[in-house]
Amino acid sequence: MNFFKSKLFIVLAIVTVIIVAFMILSAAFGFGTGPVSNGLNIITTPVQNGIYGIGKGISSFFEGIGKSGQYKGLYDESQKRVTELEAEVREIDTLKNENDRLRALLDFEEREKDKKLVAAQVAASSPDNWYAEIQLNKGTNSGIRKDNVVYTDNGLVGYVTEVGPTWCKVLTVLDINASVGCVVPRSGDTAVAEGDAELAQNSECSMNYISKDATVIVGDSVETSGLGSIYPAGILIGKISSITPELQGLYNKATIKTSVDFKSLREVVVIVG
């Protein structure tokens, strides 16, 4: 039977034409949050949040087991002594971490006291290897709107691109479509931080359009510059980890190691007003 006269070919041709038409329309005019997308996300977000929380717990547990292995050598020498020391060190570590966390939280609250903030949790992440998008478990019911900025006490996470009643999607600074106006406070040099799929694997993004006259050095802190309509000035993005001088172009390039650890990201804050 001729394939081009078969029922399968006709169905495939019709479906392909319809989907390609939708593809062109969504590429040209954007692909907003429709009722189907909204309904699906309302149903799936609590399930995703639960699974994500369990996954984080399990991975933290195994990380803990991995860390305890480093005490094994000392354990052989003096079992009792080391056990006592371990307990002591753990207690001190716990107190130190708690102290650091509370101090950071106090600083953070003091710094952000004029802003209206909503705390949220990461419920899911982009299901493919190309994008760095996350989904949060709060939405319009908590006052979150499109273009709201998301960050933690460590620095910038991204901004809200889609929002439903109980969920929202956040385009992180690591995403290939992300673009943030940035400044190096030490020297005052400005540039644009942009996501890069390859760099994102190491929690890094690229810093482009650095003037040839700029005096940036490795280790410099990079903050949002406030240029553009989304990000306010002064939110830490990260530190410059490498600089690539361009011999022929007008600008130099650099790489920023983000201050937020996206691999262990769970709690975030959304600026809603």
Partner: peptide, 12 residues
């Protein structure tokens, strides 16, 4: 619908 940037790429 849930994660796509351009509608229809994964569908096809």
């Amino acid at each position: 619908i849930t994660w796509g940037r351009v509608f229809g790429v994964r569908t096809l």
